[in-house]
Design a protein around this nucleic acid. Structure first.
Lengths: 122, 122
DNA sequence: CGGGATCCTGCACGATACTG
DNA sequence: CAGTATCGTGCAGGATCCCG
């Protein structure tokens, strides 16, 4: 049932080594803001302003650049409506939803154990 | 079956907000090297030197500091043998193994989709 | 409202050398 | 062998202003 690094390396020896695409994806998704944005979006389509409030502490610049990389990665879909004032909505793409299906259980675990972990290291 | 951020916020409204312990854990685990070290260790107990080779591209400094935070977080266990030359072994703690059970499926997904994602954004 | 452009700063991270 | 100590630096990320 469980997968190991050795298993993954069995399929592709270069996996998770330096310069490997997996590293790039990891950097995008696991960066400081990537997951938090994806996590917010897993609640459903959201406008820029709402997203900004839901990802507490993010700056406009980082929200913009994070969304751009995630969109380029095909994990997030951006929809702009030709209105005044402008309205732009962000949503997970099918690929993004697929990813979050793997991430959410992890987040749940983190939510459950974070306090313990931080206490220990204090 | 699926969990959402709203669900998690239902248990604790502060979850994943700024300054929340979850953010700290995320920074430790999801940082550039955290996961990669944990991933390598999920193959089993390893000595420092082996670990350094398995986590391709990591510097000694980063390996040392990453291991120290992960050990302080209670995710990694360090065992030093009073020998000459010194021998030190690192292993996942039970907590760390529990965590990796959630992380490995994610890594498998990333391994499977990384190429697509990077191609798209190129 | 939803960003882009610009400037600035810290610290995450790397390289090198040294040690018990 | 398994680290620490020291020194540099690039770039992630914050603050601010502006624009369609």
């Amino acid at each position: 049932m469980s997968v190991s690094l050795a298993d993954l390396r069995g399929r592709d020896p270069q996996i998770f080594t330096d310069g490997c695409p997996t590293r790039t994806v990891l950097d995008h998704v696991m960066g400081k803001w990537g997951i938090l944005v994806l996590l917010a979006l897993s609640d459903g389509t959201q406008r820029w302003g709402v997203l900004r409030r839901n990802v507490a502490g993010i700056s406009e610049k980082m929200l913009a650049s994070t969304l751009k990389t995630l969109e380029a990665d095909g994990l997030v879909r951006r929809t702009a409506y030709p209105e005044v004032p402008p309205r732009v909505e962000y949503a997970l793409s099918p690929l993004g939803r697929d990813l979050m299906q793997r991430v959410l259980p992890l987040m749940e675990w983190v939510a459950d154990h974070a306090a313990d972990i931080v206490d220990r290291s204090a």
